[in-house]
Structures are given as structure tokens and as C-alpha cells.
Design a protein around this nucleic acid. Structure first.
Lengths: 324, 324
DNA sequence: CGAGGATCTGACAACGTTGTCAGCCCGGGA
DNA sequence: TCCCGGGCTGACAACGTTGTCAGATCCTCG
């Protein structure tokens, strides 16, 4: 900038004014400055600029589990879209479900002076963020709640969706519903399981012996479905609590030519092309992410109202559920 | 930092030394400083730090078409992984295939003083990056070549993969191969088409009347496959130049109970579960991205050798191709 | 004709940090 | 005894930019 000023024969302040389109610069002086900028290939240092002005860095931080996962990729895409509408860049970090790493990354994002944080929590204690939030870096949590910190949160209606889906199974006459899930250490799993139990209990059908935990991949899901079907009183319906599990269940049911009803939480691409029909509790991931991002930008723009908890509704997409 | 220094009764420089683990600080002084840091919740301003030291910002920029797209999400994931290995954060921007937007985003990334750029080009002229690169911001292009700029490039072997796949069709006795693609304005489409033509020409089977352009979505692909099959001399095999097109082709061939051979470029999740078998020219997107990212970090670390062009091989994944 | 405002410009300090350098203290060798 | 070097500390300037303020010029209006 000093060089540009020298070449144009003006002060650095005038160069600053020109590159920021500030008023009160004679058109011909501005011309000279712009010529010098072009000649020297000058580009404003955004870091120094936001350091001095103390203003926004026009950057927000997004912390997710893993970028390559389609669910998080969709979130990142929707957030990027909203960010772009606010001329803001996106700093993305993957916690890999590791709370220690999550904490370190969030601190790092704050050290980089992001204007706000969008977090899919991995850990369950975010008290360490309190000082940052108080110092003016707003944070919005999505898909899972924050721990130990009053903060804006945008969640899916996991419980309501699971309840509605299982109620449908019950109404179709199913009495024994196998429930397949990963781990109750995961918030979404707990909620979905609770919803399923709500619906079963309401019909007097609760039976914890039909719940299978610890299913992490499609292969395990397929094996567990097989085991349940081989029992003396097999379930006539299955509820898979996420799409990895649904996938394995589809494979096994199809392989056996079973007539069991299959309900899944999470829709996914191509599910309608799969060889076994199943109904899903679906939701719009983009709405989840956009809602959170828009809330964050309202905070960044100065909204200081009390933290909000928003719930994104789910939809039961019926692709055919056989009666009992 | 001034406050911390005051509270600990030392100079700011000593605080700086402590937070940077610099040598020559008495352990008890360091203790006092750390206590003050904790009490005030001090966090180093990474922006100011890299402004003053002129050193790296520990941030790289990644420019892709669209984060939500699984191909780019996989790239982003692999790049994030490599970045994390180098304690570097990732600034991601989506060009949305718009060259003007691409240019603006790349400039913006440079203004943010990223240590390096990883670019999936949207436009075909990147001469505007020359001054940045000369000033020391290395750039590596991936999946598509840069235009008007000598730069490191990491590409898939589109042409070789397509050639190998189509050669396989020819060897199985197919004489009429329908070729389905989007637009030759896209580099990868041009290369794949060239590879297919190579293989057909080598067998004396080139016939441009079997090439169909402008297919942007599965629905169009399905329609075009139907049209080709309804012709008096229908193809006995199809080559879909990307996975969106493969998907539509699968649907139509399955619907008609056709026995045509289907070859696709790009593998995708679940392809093995689809109702119609097809063979794909596959590649490892993660290798593509990791290779590019690792090259970028070598540049960042000072490698000044001549720009390199790397080719990532493809693999023919045979899931069954009927003979003619 | 002078006051007051609008327009234009630049000197200077400051944002939060770190590189440079000078200075202090202390122990050990000549 | 003096000198030297290593350990430790702080004052100051600087990174590239912009906020503040003051000064200069010109126009308008009473």
C-alpha cells in the first residue's frame, strides 16, 4: 500500500480510501491510485484490515464430524450458501467425533477471530466456549444439543419422527417390532429410540428384548436382522435408526425374500431404487443447516435476544409398508 | 495480552514468549503468566500473530464447484485430512461452475493470506493468479487443468480409463456403442469422449451418430437411452460418461428388461445394489485429492521445482458385461 | 465580505502480536 | 580481579491497514 501511495503520489490513507470505495476522493486521484494498484498488482491484506478496524473478519467457522459424510456435506453446502449470501467465507473443521479434538478446533477457530461458530457437537461439555461467547463470538449448535452452555440450538424432531413412524407400524397391525441402533451414547439415537418406545408403550407393545444395540455398519445390521428373523417368534417389522443400518437391513430382507415391514430413519439418495421397499422418516438436512446458519447471522448482526431452541419437523415418506 | 502482562507483573514480550513456548523464561514467571492467562481467559489473536511474524497463516484455500456434491465432499474430506496432518485449517469456497465467481473467490482467498490454494477450476483462464503465485502463494489444480498458467496439476486418467472400458466392450463383440455425455465444454467429458473414440477408431467402429450430447440429469439420460433403443439399429452397449447419466441409463434398461451392456464412468455408493448390473471405470477420489494436497504442502514448505503434472490411474471394475 | 459547510487530503496513532536489540544478573575461567 | 558468555527480561519498532483529527480548499448563503 505504501508502494502504491508512492507511485500514485498520494498518502497511504488515500489509497485506503480508494480501495474501500470511501467517499471524498477526487475522481482523477482515484484513477491514479487504481492505475498504481493495477500496475503493482496490489491486493489488500484482509487480515491487517480486520485487525485494525476490529470489525468482522467475514469468516464463520463450521465444525462437523466429517466432511466426506453426505449428511455433513449437505450441511456444509447449505451453510456455504447462506454464508455466501452474507459475503462470508467458511472455515471448516472435522472433529471426527473426538471431544478433545473438537475443543481444540473450536479454540483454534476462535483464535482466528471468526465472526461466529456453527457446531455439530461431538462432546457433551461446551462450557469452555462460554468466555468466547461472552466476548462476542456467537455460536449456534445443530443436530445435537450443546452441553453446559446456554446457546441457540437447531435440532431435528427425532423423537416425534420415530414415534410417528412406529405408530404407523402399530396401526398396520405389527405387534413385534425389531429396533436396530448404534449406541445410546449418541444423542440422536437416544431420542429416536425414545420415540419408538413412546409409540410401542402407547399400544402396550413395549418389549426391550427386540432392541439390538451396537450396530455400526451395514454388515452388522444384516447379520442382526438375520438373527432376529431366525428366532422362534420373529419380528414382523423392523425399525432401523439410521441409514447405514437401513442399508444392511434392506440387503438381508431382500436376500431372504422376507415380507417384513421396514421403517428407516434418514432418507438417502437412491433409496427408491433399492430392491426392497421401505418407508422412511425423512427430513430436510438443508433446512436444518440453513435455519442454523440464518440464526447465526442474525446473532452476528447483533440480535441479543435469549437463546432459541428450534425443531425441524420430519416427514413420513411412505414407500409401502406391508400389513401384519 | 497487555492485561495479562499487567496481571502477571511482566512485559507483554514475556507473555508472548510464554504463550509461544519460547525458551529463556523462568519457570516460576511462566507459571504466573499462565495463571494470568487462565484467569483472564486470554486467547492469542492468530491474525495479529501472523500479520506481525509474516509467517504462515496455517490456512489453505480449497475452491470446488459445490460442497454438497459427493465427489467434491470426498475431495474436501481428503484435503481436510492432509491439512489436519499439517496443523492447517481449511477455507472452503464453492464456485458453482461460474468462472467470474471463481476468480472473485480466489482473489478473496489470497486477500486472506492463505498459505496455498487447491483449485478445481471452473473457468479456463487463470492468468490472474500469476501475480499471486509469483508472490509466493502456491496453487495446485486438480481434476481439471489450469488455463494460462504454468502450475501443478493432478488429473484423473480420463482418456485412458474410457479407452480401456470401451476396448473391453469391443472385445466382447459389441459393434454399436451408444455414448451418452453432458457437454464437451467440460474438460473431463472431452477427455472421456476422446478415449472412447480412440478405442472405437482402433477397431474401425467409430460412428458419431451414436453419440448423444447435452444430458444433464438421470431423466434425460433415461429418455435418450429409450430413443436409441427404439431406433432401427439400436446399440448393443452404452457408455455413460458420468454417474448421473449411468443412473438414468440403469433405470431405463431395467424398465425395458433390456440385455444391453452398460459401462459407466464414475463409480458411486450403492452402485452394486442397483437393479441392473453395470461395469464402471472407477478411480479413487481420495487419492486424487490427497496427492494434490500433499503436493501443495511440499510447495508451501519451499519446494520450488518445476510444475508437475500427475495422472491418477483408473480401474475397470467389472460387474458383468454381456457379450454381443 | 465573512461565516459555515461540504469536499478532499494527509499525519499520526492504533489494532495485537513478535523480531530485534540492549541490558541485567550470575557463574566460571584467566 | 576482570571479562565473557549464557540465561532471562523488557523497550521499542514494526507487520499492513484504518479511525481520528486537523488542515486546506472551494462553494454557498446571508
Amino acid at each position: 500500500m505504501v508502494d502504491v501511495a508512492a507511485l500514485a503520489g498520494v498518502s497511504v490513507k488515500t489509497v485506503s480510501r480508494v480501495v474501500n470505495n470511501a467517499p471524498y476522493v477526487q475522481p482523477e486521484v482515484a484513477q491514479r491510485v487504481l492505475a498504481a494498484v493495477a500496475e503493482l498488482g496490489f491486493r489488500r491484506n484482509h487480515l491487517a484490515s480486520s485487525l485494525r478496524s476490529g470489525q468482522a473478519t467475514a469468516t464463520i467457522g463450521l465444525l462437523i464430524e466429517e466432511i466426506a459424510n453426505p449428511f455433513y456435506a449437505t450441511i456444509a453446502g447449505a451453510v456455504a450458501e447462506v454464508a455466501s449470501e452474507h459475503d462470508t467465507m467458511l472455515l471448516i473443521a472435522s472433529s471426527e467425533e473426538n471431544p478433545a479434538r473438537e475443543q481444540q478446533l473450536l479454540r483454534d477457530l476462535c483464535a482466528r477471530q471468526v465472526d461466529g461458530l456453527l457446531v455439530v457437537p461431538a462432546g457433551d461439555d461446551h462450557a469452555f466456549l462460554r468466555s468466547e461467547v461472552e466476548r462476542g463470538t456467537p455460536a449456534v449448535f445443530l443436530d445435537r444439543p450443546a452441553g453446559g452452555l446456554p446457546a441457540d440450538t437447531v435440532l431435528l424432531d427425532n423423537r416425534g419422527g420415530a414415534r410417528a413412524g412406529v405408530r404407523q407400524l402399530v396401526e398396520l397391525g405389527h405387534r413385534r417390532v425389531g429396533i436396530l441402533l448404534d449406541s445410546t451414547a449418541i444423542y440422536t439415537m437416544r431420542e429416536r429410540l425414545a420415540g419408538a418406545r413412546d409409540a410401542l408403550a402407547a399400544a402396550g407393545l413395549a418389549d426391550d428384548r427386540l432392541i439390538r444395540y451396537g450396530i455400526r455398519d451395514p454388515e452388522t445390521a444384516a447379520r442382526v436382522v438375520g438373527e432376529l428373523l431366525d428366532e422362534p417368534e420373529p419380528p414382523s417389522a423392523f425399525f432401523a435408526l439410521n441409514n447405514r443400518i437401513s442399508l444392511g437391513a434392506v440387503e438381508e430382507l431382500h436376500r431372504r425374500g422376507s415380507a417384513a415391514a421396514l421403517l428407516g430413519f434418514d432418507d438417502f439418495d437412491l433409496s427408491r431404487l433399492l430392491p426392497y421397499p421401505f418407508t422412511v422418516v425423512a427430513y430436510d438436512t438443508r433446512t436444518l443447516a440453513r435455519t442454523a446458519a440464518e440464526l447465526l447471522f442474525r446473532r452476528i448482526q447483533g440480535d441479543r435476544s435469549a437463546p432459541r431452541d428450534l425443531l425441524i419437523p420430519t416427514v413420513l415418506v411412505d414407500r409401502g409398508l406391508p400389513r401384519r
